[in-house]
């Protein structure tokens, strides 16, 4: 098995790596690039802990090959904050105590960010269905859903503020 050379962009940075043809994108992120914020909970697309975006599309990194990333734009939890400025979702997750153990949190944040980009004013039901592929065993989801609802509300308020 000869390795494949991949040139890609991760969180805005140009990145090159060699990977095995059957390495998943998750294997590459965690084991080759030390981007361990993306978690492996199942390796079969059932838990969402490895949520990332490829060219802006929300996917499970465990269900994509590392080789596929060539020329694409990958975004992970590590790129969500801008320097020390957190994304509003990250702020709200902290404020609402929307995490207990925190291992599902990166996946939820990446998935919720993707939702708000597509639908800035989701209903509670829309949030619950969008995030149905992200398993959390600690919180019963209550505080996570509230954090996302509150973020949407606040971001909407800010957009309105800017317009006026």
């Amino acid at each position: 098995m000869s390795q494949i050379h991949v040139s890609t962009t991760i969180n805005g940075d140009p990145v090159e790596y060699l990977c095995e043809p059957d390495d998943t994108l998750l294997d590459v992120l965690r084991d080759r690039l030390s981007l361990t914020g993306t978690k492996e909970g199942c390796g079969s697309g059932d838990c969402g802990a490895c949520s990332v975006t490829i060219d802006g599309r929300l996917v499970c990194a465990c269900l994509a090959l590392g080789a596929e990333a060539d020329g694409r734009k990958i975004d992970t939890i590590e790129g969500m904050a801008e320097g020390e400025k957190l994304h509003p979702l990250q702020e709200k997750f902290l404020e609402h105590a929307a995490l207990q153990c925190g291992v599902c949190t990166p996946g939820f944040l990446v998935a919720a960010k993707s939702l708000l980009e597509k639908n800035p004013s989701p209903t509670e039901t829309e949030i619950r269905y969008w995030l149905a592929g992200n398993l959390c065993r600690c919180t019963g989801y209550d505080k996570i859903i509230r954090a996302v609802m509150d973020t949407a509300k606040e971001m909407k308020g800010k957009r309105k503020g800017k317009k006026s």
Binding site: T36, A81, F93, L94, G102, L109
Partner: peptide
């Protein structure tokens, strides 16, 4: 009261080190 948890920032930014995160 409901202060922010001390391990929170690392957990929302992906920096927290869980069992499989070290080499």
């Amino acid at each position: 009261t409901r202060p922010l948890r001390p391990d929170g920032l690392d957990k929302v930014t992906g920096k927290a080190q869980f069992g499989a995160d070290v080499t």
